[in-house]
């Protein structure tokens, strides 16, 4: 059961197997939780939306079709809930619109030698701060790539954007992060 695909587990839960849901939840609870907490930058709101996402998945289990990727389906729900939150806060959502930061000049960023940085807690904390400070669209793409493990095509399909736009946002996000971590490169 542990090696079963997400789609198969979801079908089993659809048919009444509660154990299949436990496996699914165990697999995706961390990435989804981090995606929401780092996207929304507010733990309490993120936890409320996190719980609501799972409840919606449970209630909509009968409508799930195995033809769609379960992970894409789960993060699609989470992203839509995040957009609703942004709209409720009368904050102009920036996830699916053009981010003005994308027009900035792409910084000259070089790849990092992370062999020593992975043990540098200050560097890791700084990385998370830099992610939090990314524009919404770039942060969304970066988190979907790193936490959900989605490809650029999957992110483009999920956000109803073209792949080149998604790639551009990701490129800008990476450059900003590398620039912010430059102080640890000595």
């Amino acid at each position: 059961m542990r090696d079963e695909s997400d789609e198969h587990l979801m079908l089993r839960y659809q048919q009444g197997d509660a154990g299949a849901f436990d496996i699914l939840y165990q697999r995706h609870k961390g990435p989804l939780y981090r995606y929401l907490t780092r996207l929304l930058a507010h733990d309490q709101t993120a936890e409320e939306i996190y719980q609501d996402v799972w409840l919606r998945l449970i209630q909509a289990r009968s409508r799930y079709q195995a033809s769609a990727s379960f992970r894409t389906y789960l993060f699609q729900i989470a992203r839509n809930r995040a957009l609703d939150h942004f709209r409720s806060q009368r904050r102009r959502p920036q996830l699916a619109t053009h981010d003005p930061a994308d027009t900035d000049e792409l910084p000259d960023a070089q790849q990092l030698d992370v062999a020593d940085l992975v043990h540098n807690h200050s560097c890791l904390a700084r990385l998370l701060e830099l992610v939090r400070d990314l524009p919404d669209a770039q942060r969304d793409v970066f988190l979907l790539k790193e936490e959900a493990g989605l490809s650029l095509q999957e992110i483009a399909a999920l956000s109803t954007e073209n792949v080149e736009a998604v790639k551009s946002r990701l490129r800008y996000a990476i450059a900003k992060l590398r620039t912010g971590l430059r102080e640890f490169l000595t």
């Binding site: 992975v118 890791l124 790639k167 490129r171």
Partner: peptide, 23 residues
């Protein structure tokens, strides 16, 4: 992309090394 700007393997490794949060 084959450009260094599109290759995020270094950042991915560093991001995964960051403290993970759980519900």
């Amino acid at each position: 992309s084959k450009t260094p700007a599109d290759n995020s393997d270094d950042l991915s490794r560093l991001y995964r090394a960051a403290p993970t949060a759980e519900p």
